[in-house]
Design a protein around this nucleic acid. Sequence first.
RNA 1: GGAGAGGUGGCCGAGUGGUCGAAGGCGCUCGCUUGGAAAGCGAGUGUGCCCCACAAGGGUACCGGGGGUUCGAAUCCCUUCCUCUCCGCCA
Length: 424
Amino acid sequence: MLQVAQVLKDKETILHGLKKRNFKEPEKAIDILLELDEKRKSLQQKHDNALAETNQLSKQIGQLMAQGKKEEAEAIKVKTAEYKNEGKILGEELKAVEDELRELLYTIPNVPNTKVPAGNTDQDNVVESTHGEIPRLHAGAKPHWELIEQYDIIDFELGNKITGAGFPVYKGKGAKLQRALINFFLDEAEKAGYGEVQPPIMINQASGYGTGQLPDKEGQMYHATEDDYYLIPTAEVPITNIYRDVILQLDELPKKHVGYTPCFRREAGSWGAHVRGLNRLHQFDKVEIVQIQHPDKSYAALDEMSTYIQSLLKKLELPYRVLLLCGGDLGFTSAITYDMEVFSAAQQKWLEVSSVSNFETFQANRLKLRFKDENKKTQLLHTLNGSALALPRIVAAILENNQTPEGIKVPKVLVPYCRFEWIN
RNA sequence: GGAGAGGUGGCCGAGUGGUCGAAGGCGCUCGCUUGGAAAGCGAGUGUGCCCCACAAGGGUACCGGGGGUUCGAAUCCCUUCCUCUCCGCCA
């Protein structure tokens, strides 16, 4: 959520940024925002004054009562009525304006960083770098959805029976490969200084608002209405919300966490022929890294996270590229996002396996996540997160890229975790 | 799920209608003291918003959340969430 103070200070920058991400008529929204804020201030002033009057009179009544001057007290009581009424009306008006202001703020996305290129769709994302060699597969190489059937390691039909589409069952070496990857990712993150957490995978509304899934992405989350809980779409939500309503000291920074969780996404309306097999699921596993950073250090942290994520892909010997997302493809809450895509040899396409973002103060403002600076002043922190990594597409790429006529060769780094070298 | 108790500042813990943002203690910060430290002594120590120069100062709100009674509520009432104890159930 944008800060009104920031809008007042940097209106032009903000307008420019919002245009870059194709936010419609930003001038209109910002003008209304500033107007509402003016209204809010003036109403609050009047409201506070009315309350100050009644408080003053109430004190007098108290003193008079203590002195036994009942009649005088009664006389003042009558006087309070008009202030009270005025205060009540002003209070209602103030609340209405505050609500309107908040609703408006919920509709305005984060302002992209200056590095973010203009553009409308994923076609306009910029390839920053490409790494590794694209493997040449043997004749008769198959896409992963055929391989998983051949080796009987992931079963979509069974998932259909138990739950529905997009909830596969991992079996045998498929399950073990998955578990190996999770452990590998957690161990690597630990070595890189991320403290492991295992958060709840259901969250309440306050948490959903805190990181920005609500109200923007309400329809994308599974909602347990009986208890008003949501299944998490990513571990970012519970992990970042650890720090909701927290004021950190300078020497406590940065906070770095890693967590493995299943993730749930309804993916309403985004199904189609191009998302076969493991490419898109309703439930999938992901290891997520999160950082809470000092504003001056968040961009260095973003680089560090990107480098770290790439180190995983290198160790897994997967060819990948790094994309800088354009304004139009940027998530609602993000100021800048890099996507890591792995090349899936049998499908001949790039699959997104990680997304690393700096949210600057956008989430922190909603979370009320702050720190005390050198001058003991409270300031908003920066939040960042990245997938390290999302499992299904990594599995798909490993299966496809490492296939041979004899079976699928497990990447070296995973062998100690899997305790087998081949899926055959 | 049933019965009861309770939710107060970083922590512990007073406060059951009036000047309470809230006693006291602990912790923390600064100063004095010391060769240094401890102890001791003194001062300070929440957050949001508004006025204002993001200063000083002032106003207002906040004692789990929401609503109500009252001139006035941490204190009374309603509601909701959470915690604890006992019972039930159970991985």
